[in-house]
Design a protein around this nucleic acid. Sequence first.
DNA 1: CAAAAATGAGACATATATGTCTCATGATGA
DNA 2: TCATCATGAGACATATATGTCTCATTTTTG
Lengths: 182, 182
Amino acid sequence: MMKKSETKIIEAGFSVFSANPTATLADVAKEAGVGRATLHRHYAGREDLMAALAMVAMQELDDAIEAATKDTPSYTEALRLSLVAIIPLADRQMFLANEPLDHVPEVLEAYTQQLDETAEAVEASKEEGGFDAAVPTAWIVQAIETLTYAAWTVVRDGDATPEEAAALAWRTLQSGLTGGAK
Amino acid sequence: MMKKSETKIIEAGFSVFSANPTATLADVAKEAGVGRATLHRHYAGREDLMAALAMVAMQELDDAIEAATKDTPSYTEALRLSLVAIIPLADRQMFLANEPLDHVPEVLEAYTQQLDETAEAVEASKEEGGFDAAVPTAWIVQAIETLTYAAWTVVRDGDATPEEAAALAWRTLQSGLTGGAK
DNA sequence: CAAAAATGAGACATATATGTCTCATGATGA
DNA sequence: TCATCATGAGACATATATGTCTCATTTTTG
């Protein structure tokens, strides 16, 4: 069964634009194995495609977090599970972080809301003793986001499995990387 | 004293392209407060400008690290000082990381060499006990790079001073962010 | 099988970024 | 002061990405 054109185009969009943000729609169509006209039939233009990519990325992230964090015993554990769940989607995360979302207020709102929810979870985790209350929440949120990206890159480069990378990222957040010898 | 046009154009390039990778040369010229023709007088075209930006970024990073790490007592301390020194230049770092450097082999080589040197410093630091030898060097290098970026963003967003951000990034690397309660 | 929908290929027109050139102006330096 | 140089503004030509359309073919659906 062949994938739907839309699916192929969206996937190619993430692939091509993450490699080269100035790539043309022809590049995307080619990568998707689809005629250029077909791309235009589904997405009116570059802006439309970008908006669609942003919405898909947002949705996938939301779904992954939602699925990972329901029925969790603590906020700290919820954060850890979110991190694990998001690692395979870090390219989506970075797409959202790098792309100017001004033209897609719907996504912009969802994105900031997601950051806010992470911040709330971090605050709650502080009360559980999961994080040092003296450390600014803004820093913890940022560290989670960037270490997720770090985990994704080492997986991409073949330097670790997703599980290993997730463990390393969480360890870094929790207890750092200090060695035993002194 | 007015800045030289070249300086203004380079600075505008970092600013504009980091906000929007698909920005036009006209956008850059406008941001630089310079005529579009002047931009073309200094840089033949988009590729030339990108290459120039990459080389400037590379040079600035090299210089900053060089200045920060000469006469340091240990590799671990050298890494810490490098991190501190690079934070104000994290936008340069990200420019290099995000831009396809295939067309600028000179910079590509310097970039990979810089990563190699960081890896070597991490290995050496492991022997000093600065980092856990059981943790993959690739992860530590990646964590350093992304936490540097994290530090830069919180500074940019006004959530911390450069000194605070540097301290947070280093603490995260060394001992994590765990709170007291268990 | 037959109708309907989706697609690929390509022609075509358009918009826009890019690159070149000229000329008048202002700055710089001898 | 005078000469040189860099610049801004704008005209202009070109290249390229974009967007639309048609038509034959394939795929899907009923």
